[in-house]
Design a protein around this nucleic acid. Sequence first.
DNA 1: CAGTGGTCTAGACCACGGA
DNA 2: CCGTGGTCTAGACCACTGC
Lengths: 240, 240
Amino acid sequence: MLKYEAVVDDLKKKINDGKYAPSTQLPTITQLCLQYGVSKITIKKAMDELERQGFVTRQRGSGTYAKQRLDENEFARWTENDHIKGTKRDYAERGMRVTSVVYDFSVVEPPAHVARYLQMDPHEGFCYHIVRRRDLEGEPSSIEYTYMPIDLIPNLKRANVEDSIYHYITEDLGLNIDSAHSIFRAVNPTEDEQRWMGVGPGYPMLEVEQVAFLSNGEPFEYSITRHLKITGEVHSVRVH
Amino acid sequence: MLKYEAVVDDLKKKINDGKYAPSTQLPTITQLCLQYGVSKITIKKAMDELERQGFVTRQRGSGTYAKQRLDENEFARWTENDHIKGTKRDYAERGMRVTSVVYDFSVVEPPAHVARYLQMDPHEGFCYHIVRRRDLEGEPSSIEYTYMPIDLIPNLKRANVEDSIYHYITEDLGLNIDSAHSIFRAVNPTEDEQRWMGVGPGYPMLEVEQVAFLSNGEPFEYSITRHLKITGEVHSVRVH
DNA sequence: CAGTGGTCTAGACCACGGA
DNA sequence: CCGTGGTCTAGACCACTGC
């Protein structure tokens, strides 16, 4: 374990345990250097991380202070944003059963805006088009519309789509998923969605439009996911 | 201007101008050190920032690559998250006129969950309770329910509430707003909201529940804001 | 003006990717 | 194996807060 990670973990624990209570000052950087036997820049890096995660606030000339964090909702997602991982793994780690219903799995020419996001030349190349309902413990949770270039993600099978696409990409293809750019909005379900999800026309859904990237900067996925209320909640920490 | 900021700005410009095209490799850290005449750790810090903002991706052993960013929507908010500022200032900077309709401005005992978020002892101390509609260019944009301890924010006047509360806190009180923890959800409007905002019962609104903090770690505001579709859009970059 | 956090350096060493 | 980015150090100097 890296030194700054160890410092982060220890300070998180102390803040959660109330050893450093909310709105009280933490030891100074110099003191923490002595305490953990590391250099100033390492403590600084640990503090950057704690600030990003919403555990502390810092004021030059004054000090570092603990903050109280919002209660974690059981269904909160991609908040802590320390990870990009598939829905399935995300929930599997909490011991929840994720299943899928596939409504479409085909190969198409992508619409213009999708081609643009995926950096494909117009009318050059094809994409998978996937429509899936994701169920949590057997209950409909979200509906997902995905485009991926077949050149980047070859040989995707229906079995992968019914299980976990992210698993196929990372484990079978050995590709490295790096990051995602997302937009969140509130929307109403389409008629198809009302039928698929069992909700009325005025039901509020959280829509996430997203482009995901590999570690070489190539976009490999454009998707729109619409979440039912119970599982659609996004937490975030904004700083400065 | 700080050295790493100058590097960030210059690289952003080069990426936006296509000098470093999406999915292509940037110069190595060593090359950038020479190019900008700064040390490795300064380039590193600049890269951290560019990664956080979604401009680049990095892979140890391989290199740093440019990414294409999602188009900026005119109404995208607190994405770039480089700033916490009030709605008014936020939109004023884009040349838009923000006005308010105040439905309630009173002093109350906070509900239990609000008292907990604001770290107030139960039945000890009072809060302002503010209900405001925020209008953009004369059109209803969002409805806002706010609690703030009167001890922390003394002498708040109706005129401030009708103008900008953030302005009063930062300019008049000289307090330092540091950060905010938020939760996003999709919801339907209440009956009051349907009347105030001129929408039907099934209209999808983006709700933001939020606790905001001063730079000494003290929470000073609990609020729930519900946005109409046109102005309620949140952009975000998730990494690793 | 003493004490805090922030920036920056030059350089050692490590971890990982890819040919 | 070499080249990449990542971590870490000791220490100089700066910027801000608050008494």
